[in-house]
Design a protein around this nucleic acid. Structure first.
Lengths: 167, 167
DNA sequence: TCCGATTATATGCAGATGCATGTAATCAAC
DNA sequence: GTTGATTACATGCATCTGCATATAATCGGA
């Protein structure tokens, strides 16, 4: 699922991997992350809660709900794995459906401020409550509290400028 | 990006999280995983190696390359995050481009056996070599060897019937 | 053996997505 | 304050994707 690495470590594995072994470890790790992501996403997709908003749309609603003020499209784009035009049209749909409001930025006429409407906040919360339970269920079924905290810390290190887990 | 949980732990956090705190930890962890996934996928998408096969197509080529014999579509589907019709058509394209061969299953006329052609194996290897280096780069830049091994183990636990990391 | 249930894959169709590009506003330097 | 570069976002168009459904084969009994 990930990449092509050297078939196998040549000799006995040293305590600290070097060269090819290090590359192999890194790739195995990424593949494990991909597999976990894939498996969990399927599980979550099966929840019967995505009628008002698709998972991607929910992602945007959630991101907006976590932000203090209104956000610009480009800011949202940093948090959502979608092309700029893709996000633009996704937001269009959310605006059409009355879940998001778009108002002009007084300071910059190119940009527009996006924020949740009451309905949007409502949908986000309704989905979030149920989805949050599923997430917790899946994660705590598989990992202990210590492991969860470890994973949170490790995953955080994979993203740039991370505020970091309190841990 | 993930879900809605209780605003904050009410009292002092106990050594082992319970109830709401546990749910909160699980959700924070999942969000960290999503963020890491999102960030790294973007980084990898920017590599200039996806002209012969898209990332999803590569995923299929890679999966096929890791399997001993030919695979059926439904088997591939277990490893690829894509609907069955979506995968069916993706494979169509790969067959049309001569990267994958589809031959009838003698034992089951409903199924068909999928395997890499020489060209397909070639493309997979060429992409995999470069991509594997990028993956290794990104992962080892962010994590130590110990951390990589830990993450591999933790991520493996999030998928079912995992062979498990040798640890 | 025949029939309903299940499994494996394909297809029609509507909608979503990405790439290339367009439009408009801001910025930077002269 | 003009001009070229950059930034923010939108749109045309081809392609990809998912949902519902179709088709075909296999399986499990009666």
């Amino acid at each position: 699922m990930t990449a092509e690495t050297t078939p196998a470590p040549t000799g006995a594995a040293p305590t600290a991997p070097v060269g090819a072994a290090r590359t192999r470890l890194a790739n195995e790790t990424w593949e494990a992350v991909l597999t976990a992501y894939s498996h969990l996403m399927r599980e979550f997709a099966e929840e019967d809660i995505w009628s008002d908003a698709s998972m991607r749309e929910y992602d945007v609603l959630y991101t907006l709900s976590k932000c203090d003020g209104p956000q610009r499209l480009s800011e949202l784009g940093r948090h959502v794995l979608l092309s700029q035009p893709g996000l633009s049209r996704l937001v269009d749909r959310l605006v059409d459906r009355g879940l998001v409001s778009r108002c002009a930025d007084p300071a910059d006429a190119r940009a527009s401020h996006l924020s949740l409407t009451a309905a949007g906040r409502d949908v986000q919360r309704r989905i979030g409550r149920v989805h949050g339970r599923s997430v917790a269920q899946a994660m705590t079924d598989a990992l202990t509290d210590d492991e969860l905290a470890q994973l949170r810390t490790l995953a955080s290190k994979l993203s740039p400028v991370t505020p970091g887990a309190p841990s």
